[in-house]
Design a protein around this nucleic acid. Sequence first.
DNA 1: AATCATCCCAACCGCATGTAT
DNA 2: CATACATGCGGTTGGGATGAT
Length: 245
Amino acid sequence: MRKPCCDKQGNNKGAWSVQEDQKLIDYIKTHGEGCWRSLPKAAGLHRCGKSCRLRWINYLRPDIKRGNFGQDEEELIIKLHALLGNRWSLIAGRLPGRTDNEVKNYWNSHLKKKLIKMGIDPNNHRLNQIPTRPQAEPAAPVIATSTTKGSKNNITRSKPKKLSNGDNHRVSDTANCLEDDYKSLVIQQVAASGSSSINLDLSIAVPASPGHSNPFGNKQQNFKWGKTSQVENDPSSMPTLLLFR
DNA sequence: AATCATCCCAACCGCATGTAT
DNA sequence: CATACATGCGGTTGGGATGAT
């Protein structure tokens, strides 16, 4: 099998030092993003490329918006999550200056609880007290798993086993779980809530920020909807059409 | 003040996917 | 076509910060 990218002995792990940050910033300022594999060596960093990429994207990029999420951002995340499921990079792409990691963390630490408090199942965005109609596939079952962290977190952590053909069912599962009326309402609200600063076009996950822009210039933006997705088979029917059909 | 519990976020890991050879 | 490589994504974890007792 292929070797893991981060198995190099002598690579630093854990928190980044100020010096490491500066090296990475300086290098990217000079050479731009991309070629993460070779970047650490070229920049004089004892880190794997993955780690450098993560550090840059989630923390060092100059256009990152720091601070609390606004009410409008919060609502948008909830609405987009209802439509897209755990597609954090897609959701983050609609929130200028926010990273997928940040959105994911905010969802797990704040919004999930908020929805639960409101009596809404965060997995499928249904009101818990409303009887659910039978469905072929249960929505993301909450499996109580024990983790090494034990009871550290109130939120149940579950790692649903990846489907054999990838995670392409996630969106459809989540979307299918929505009651039709609720789905329509969400779609209307998302569309209506659009402001000039928030890109609601879901057709292509073009990152909202320049730092997130295609670093290689010639590569297509990847939009993963899975092998069996009709979207992939028919490039003309992108998610926008699928969702707002 | 000390201890314990919980929260939060940066970072890591494994896997999927696209591309090059 | 098969394989290896490079990158991106989402789930999970480690550990510092903060709050409660």
